[in-house]
Amino acid sequence: MHNFEKRRDRYNAFASFEKPLVNLSFELEVPEFRPYCKQHGLAPFHFFLYHVLHALEGIDNFMYRVHQGEVIKIQDFWASYTVINQDQNLNFARFEMTADLKEFVARSVEAKRVAEASTGIINTSEALSEYDQRRNIHITCMPWLKLASIEHPIYKHKDYDIPSLAWGRFSDQRDDSKLAMTMSVQAHHGFVDGYHIHLLAEAIAARIAQTMAA
């Protein structure tokens, strides 16, 4: 929590706001990873999700939460995201994170299958402890749309502390080596500035490049 103490005054300032959120939509440019995924039998969405979540994990500011009135730093979080079930209604996939890429993709694909097959809503936070509810990242992808921006539903703006990320279809191929998409990142401004979102974008691209070069 040493790094948080350096910005506690910023947190205190934004925590007094009725809506203490920063939400940026921006163009994310990453290495063109789809041929790599095809070569290695990896679904592109799950490959990309792996790098997004692990990039978040490496930046302290996205790991801060408010628990029982105190700021804490969570050590890990669920891997989760929205899916469309067989009735064309929203549902939630959720599974345990892992550092192993192939195992992560396998878990993610299975979690997606379960969520798609369920007619009732699953993997909500109601059954989790108060602490485990904080161990979350909200992820949604809309592959049918070229995303411009998004506003997420929030139960209480003032208490919001879980980052929410969204992206649309992978649609803009710059050349054989680069892929661009619009990504939206929303977080508590007491924890996250635009600079940290910039660091996240850099980390996602760097992680993908490193995996493809290995």
Rank of each mutant, 00 (worst) to 15 (best):
P153D: 00
L147P: 07
P31V: 13
D176N: 13
S184I: 03
L24N: 08
S16C: 08
G190M: 03
E57D: 14
A213Q: 15
G41S: 06
P143M: 03
A99Y: 08
G58R: 15
L90I: 10
V83I: 09
P153F: 11
I84V: 15
F14N: 07
D100V: 14
H157G: 07
A203W: 02
A15S: 10
F17S: 01
C141V: 14
T211I: 05
A111L: 12
H2Y: 12
L53T: 09
A148F: 04
G168L: 04
H51C: 11
M97V: 08
A209C: 04
Q88N: 09
I74E: 02
Y195S: 07
M183R: 01
T182I: 14
A43W: 01
F170M: 11
T124Q: 12
N3D: 08
E103Y: 03
Y11T: 05
D9S: 15
P35D: 11
K73F: 06
S164P: 00
Y195N: 03
H157Q: 05
N12W: 07
N23E: 00
F191D: 09
F33C: 02
G194R: 02
A180F: 10
V22K: 11
D175L: 14
F33Q: 03
H198V: 13
D161I: 07
M181A: 14
E57W: 13
M1E: 06
E27W: 13
E103Q: 13
L21E: 07
A99G: 14
E116I: 11
S164W: 02
P20S: 03
I162F: 13
S149K: 14
R107L: 03
M212T: 08
R174G: 13
L128S: 12
Y160C: 09
S149W: 15
N136W: 09
S118A: 13
L179C: 11
A148G: 12
I74S: 05
V114A: 10
A213Y: 02
E32M: 06
I137A: 01
M212I: 07
L49G: 12
D172K: 04
V185C: 15
A180Y: 08
D76G: 13
K178L: 12
I59W: 11
G69H: 09
I74Q: 10
K112W: 07
R94Y: 00
R169Y: 00
P153S: 07
D87T: 12
I122P: 02
L165S: 04
V52Q: 01
R65T: 04
D176F: 10
E151P: 01
H138T: 12
